[in-house]
Amino acid sequence: MTTKTIKLRQAKTSAVTSRSLVSMLTKVALWGFLVIMAVLILFPIVIAFLGSFKSNAELTAGSTFLPKVWHPSNYADVWKLANFSRYTWNSVFVSVFATAGTLLIASISAYAVDRMDFLGKKFYVGLQASTMFISIGAVVLRPQFELMVGLNLQTSLWAVIIILVSGHASTYFILVSFMRGIPRELDEAAMIDGCSRLWIYSRIVLPLLAPGLGVAGLFAFRHAWNEYILPLVFTMSQPNLQVLTVGLASLRYGISAASQTHYMMGGAVLSMLPMLVAYVVANKSFMQMTAGSIKG
């Protein structure tokens, strides 16, 4: 073996090791980035969870990461003393009825648009699309409030539910896309048998639409459960009607906010818990819908 080939071989191996070194470094940097991002994302949620088991004094002194003594009793206090049983019930009430109403109204109109020709169909579809794109945020809140004053519902949670149901355009579009996947032969056959449209909708279309209803319902429920400003407007002066988001935020501005940090933590965990559970069970649906929205 000549010295030349040995040198060549050495050069080769060192090139290989330096390349694998680079690829290792990229790998480390990559994973470092992923881990740091994950820690940053989870940090406040973990802080809330751990904080909800600390005593208020410990939270105020703030010298610990894990609770020195675990206080599960915080949750009993939050539930009873801080009125969160009431808030939870109101949240469930609003979210369940808003979701059911949204699904009912959006599915029946999605059925009409996908399967029938009717008066003013073009206008209707255009209207639904434009409500999705016009963004006027806070501007409509006051007129909506005035409308509810007119209906004498301004101090009722039904006002919140009705307004949430009225914003069903995105649910409608989700359901139309699912409706397209249901074969038309089924309801055409039922038509020939003389079944009414309403019968076909409730007995044939709705059951077949179940997966779509599930996904759209998940979204409608999340929206209703997490909504803050709308219920705030209608329940500002009525603590007994407040939902979790509103009740929790009111602790932030309460007179004794400083002495209630453990309530704030416990309340925050209670407020996010149902969504977290739903997410663990159905996170594929959550993510698919978001990703699907881009493909139109």
Binding site: P44, I45, T261, A268, S271
Partner: peptide, 19 residues
Amino acid sequence: VYFLPTIISASVMSVVFFT
């Protein structure tokens, strides 16, 4: 993990972020 924040109410998280 990264998608998790989108399912939690912004107002609830703001209370946590306040602390």
